[in-house]
């Protein structure tokens, strides 16, 4: 069609549409590094404790950290936007407290669980709508406020008490096994992870999330419903926080308003270590999954040899900083 000898453009040139395989590009991916760390942690752990390397231990270990990992799945979407949601810990508390109080007030447990999920959805939706309607405020500030607010409401409801006494079957969420050795939470998490992986990498929704994270103005001009997608993602994040609340409450057996405090930081650390850039637009689900298990097993392994939790915090903090430092070296192609 364009064929004008006047301006020196002569023939339409062929534009390649097949990717050339580059060995260097293939290996210089963030996920490989995470994979190496993952292996290293297992080697170190097995050196530290002779009981570590067996299937039961490893499978059981996942029960200790997978509750918050559910939020990491949806938080990945939030951080790909270049946003952040620090209200998730408080959302857990609010959803869990309301569920416990309603159950103890006589609501059947299945309904209480439904309310728990609903609270998460509403909490996330409020975040989303505020962030979308007040674009001049950052997500940090909005979720900072709701973080204090949501936990505050949990305190109003339950004051400084604990509430529990759930039916036996509810324990299954946190403590149950499938085929006697596979923890139920692991199965649930794998299902959730697959869903989120497909959503992010294979669907138009995921593509639009990346687009918004890279350039929200250009996305809007390209017909992406930026506001709607943002609200959906924040609502989803609230829902995942509520799901985490279910597992966590089941594991603890009871709840308090101060439950899951500081969770937001753990979740963000999981996502960022997984190679999702907080400046938005970049990162993959595989990396996040690897990093969830790295942090989880690291914690568990050090816990086995009685390293106090605070020391593990140091390790995680340093790991986080080093990983970002390394990824800043631009060695790694970290594309969607």
């Amino acid at each position: 069609m364009v064929n004008n000898s006047n301006n020196g453009i002569t023939l339409n040139r062929e534009i390649k549409s097949e990717k050339e395989f580059s060995l260097k590009k293939f290996f210089f991916q963030w996920e490989w590094l995470l994979f190496l760390i993952f292996i290293a942690i297992h080697i170190i752990n097995s050196q530290l404790s002779p009981y570590y390397l067996n299937t039961y231990t490893l499978l059981d270990a996942t029960m200790t950290f997978l509750d918050k990992a559910f939020i990491a799945l949806s938080m990945t979407f939030v951080i790909i936007f270049g946003d952040i949601d620090i209200s998730v810990g408080s959302t857990i508390a609010l959803a869990s407290v309301i569920m416990a109080v309603l159950y103890n007030a006589g609501l059947p447990m299945p309904l209480a669980i439904l309310v728990c999920l609903l609270v998460g959805v509403i909490a996330g939706f409020i975040n989303g709508i505020l962030i979308v309607k007040f674009k001049e405020l950052s997500a940090v500030i909005v979720t900072l406020s709701t973080m204090i607010l949501y936990r505050g409401i949990a305190y109003i409801i339950l004051e400084n008490q604990a509430s529990g006494g759930f039916p036996m079957w509810f324990n299954f969420l946190g403590w149950g096994y499938i085929k006697t050795i596979i923890p139920f939470i692991l199965v649930a998490f794998i299902i959730a992870a697959v869903i989120f992986y497909v959503l992010l990498h294979k669907t138009t929704f995921g593509r639009k999330v990346y687009a918004i994270g890279n350039n929200d103005v250009a996305s809007l001009f390209s017909g992406v419903k930026v506001d709607k997608i943002k609200i959906i993602v924040f609502t989803l994040n609230g829902l995942m926080a509520a799901i985490a609340a279910l597992f966590l409450t089941s594991k603890m057996g009871s709840t308090r308003p101060n439950i899951a405090s500081g969770y937001e930081l753990d979740v963000i650390a999981m996502v960022v270590l997984g190679g999702v850039s907080t400046s938005g637009g970049k990162g993959r689900m595989i990396g996040v999954l690897l990093s969830i298990f790295i942090i989880g097993f690291l914690r568990y392994g050090l816990g086995l040899v009685n390293v106090p939790d605070q020391v593990i915090l140091i390790v995680i903090g340093i790991l986080l900083i080093f990983s970002v430092m390394l990824s800043n070296l631009k060695l790694f192609s970290n594309k969607s």
């Binding site: 339409n12 534009i15 390649k16 549409s17």
Partner: peptide, 10 residues
């Protein structure tokens, strides 16, 4: 190719 972009590949 239709708009004649000067690029090696998509």
């Amino acid at each position: 190719e239709l708009v004649n972009v000067k690029a090696r590949s998509i």
